[in-house]
């Protein structure tokens, strides 16, 4: 790659082969001189046996130029309570989710509500590769090459009316497919929401894949949103309904513990979670902690959405 101004970088170039396939940086950095270099085994990679769904997707200028978290970690360390509250539960149990056939209903305050079939969504707009930072409210982070297109592409086709102030996302809640639903750890179905200008922002991605292939079940198959400047739980997975509303949606974590999880939940190192600090984060695969950036490093693009707002109050 000759031009270093170009934001177009292949994910395979960003992740060094040694890191992608080999042992964790943790083991090296920890300084344990164990001669175990060959033991880790190759990371799972999608698409070795079949053609990837989004091979050659256009590289987005919104991508960050940071090493992507290995596929194996992205797909085995997940919060997806519909499959259990353990980090490894989704990878172990999400095989019961049936991502096809799938219908996503767009409804509410709009002129053209519509039930979208997954195949229609896959063809709706050009799918891009977007390498985004993902910061979990728990204090860890990843860098993930997603595949999708701006959520606005879908939303504008519904022609939202003047009363559409917010957008509400509802995740599937089927106990037959999702064993975690039998436990009332959250008030199912999982509901998330954005203000309409946040939902229409070009960074907000309607996401259909990662690492160039269709979304694995544990990552929110077959369709989810990714809102990179907010804590991970704001990015609803396995969405069955998108609704335009006049009132601020009652979101799952906000309902569960309102003083800990606000509606906005923008990544903000200056506003701690009531029980732990948000100033730093552990990037998965790294040993030390790094500073958390305001708006997860996307302030240049999104800070303008919140001018005049007290982000301590609207946390």
């Amino acid at each position: 790659m000759s031009s270093h101004h170009s934001p177009i970088v292949l994910s395979s170039e960003i992740t060094p082969r040694s890191m992608f396939e080999g042992r964790r940086a943790f083991l090296r950095d920890a300084g344990f001189a164990l001669a175990l270099a060959g033991v880790g085994g190759a990371a799972l990679r999608p698409g070795d046996a079949h053609a990837k769904a989004f091979e050659g997707a256009r590289k987005s200028p919104f991508s960050v130029n940071e090493p992507a978290t290995p596929f194996k970690d992205v797909t085995t360390y997940n919060n997806f309570y519909e499959f259990g509250t353990g980090k490894d539960d989704p990878a172990e149990r999400a095989h019961t989710l049936k991502p096809r056939p799938w219908t996503l209903s767009v409804e509410g305050e709009c002129a053209k509500p519509k039930r979208w079939d997954l195949d229609e969504l896959l063809k709706l707009a050009a799918v891009e590769e977007r390498i985004y930072r993902m910061r979990c409210v728990e204090g860890w982070s990843m860098v993930i090459p997603w595949n999708g297109y701006p959520l606005a592409e879908l939303l504008k086709r519904a022609e939202p009316n003047a009363r559409a102030k917010y957008v509400e996302f509802t995740t599937l809640a089927d106990p037959a497919q999702m064993p975690g639903i039998r436990t009332a750890v959250l008030d199912w179905p999982y509901v998330e929401g954005l203000r309409i200008d946040e939902a229409m922002h070009p960074l907000t991605l309607l996401t259909l894949g990662l690492y160039g292939d269709l979304l694995p079940n544990q990552n929110g198959a077959p369709v989810r949103v990714v809102v990179p400047w907010k804590y991970g739980f704001k990015s609803a997975k396995s969405i069955v309904r998108i609704r335009f509303t006049e009132q601020e949606p009652r979101t799952a974590w906000n309902k569960a513990i309102p003083r800990e999880y606000g509606f906005y939940s923008n990544v903000n190192p200056a506003v701690d979670h009531p029980r732990w600090s948000q100033a730093r984060e552990r990037r998965i695969g790294e040993f030390g902690k790094r500073a958390t950036l305001p708006f997860n490093g996307y302030g240049e693009q999104v800070a303008g959405l919140y001018t005049g707002m007290d982000l301590r109050k609207f946390f």
Binding site: R24, F26, L27, V39, G40, K72, T76, K87, W140, R282
Partner: peptide, 13 residues
């Protein structure tokens, strides 16, 4: 688990 890379994505946690 440490020796066999079995501590998952977030070994410290």
């Amino acid at each position: 688990r440490f020796a066999t890379d079995g501590l998952g994505a977030n070994p410290i946690e």
